[in-house]
């Protein structure tokens, strides 16, 4: 399972990076989303998969999966949501003000 997940994570990173390198704002934002998905899966895979019960204390259960990565990912999900929404509004505003969502045209004038 971990090997399969590693490959999935790698592919998510590949696609996310490729999207980041394009010049449409929209694709770049989607790319960042994919990158954070990849990172979350990487974190949870690192701790080892399906090694115990869900981390909710129960009578008679001794083995739980590692709760620490889950706490980290939970934080990260929320943060990346905040970043994505900010990014979205920024793109929206930039388009409204400047009339383009093309990164090449957003770079300003040549040599000031």
């Amino acid at each position: 399972m971990e090997v399969l997940m590693s490959v999935v994570i790698g592919l998510l990173f590949t696609i996310g990076t490729y999207l980041l390198l394009t010049r449409t704002l929209l694709r770049i934002i989607l790319g960042t989303s994919l990158l954070s998905h990849g990172a979350h899966l990487l974190l949870i895979t690192m701790a080892g998969l399906k090694t115990g019960a869900p981390p909710i204390l129960n009578e008679g259960v001794t083995e739980y999966v590692d709760p620490l990565p889950q706490a980290l990912i939970l934080t990260s999900i929320v943060i990346s949501f905040g970043v994505t929404s900010f990014f979205l509004v920024l793109a929206y505003r930039a388009y409204k003000e400047l009339g383009t969502d093309d990164m090449d045209r957003l770079r300003g004038n040549d040599h000031e």
């Binding site: 590693s6 490959v7 990076t17």
Partner: peptide, 25 residues
């Protein structure tokens, strides 16, 4: 992009290869 993906995959796999470190959790 492929380079980044491959590197990340290998890192993920290497983590699995290193067993024996006690988790702090």
């Amino acid at each position: 992009s492929i380079g980044v993906g491959v590197i990340i995959t290998f890192i993920a796999l290497s983590v699995q290869g290193v067993n024996g470190l006690e988790s702090i959790s």
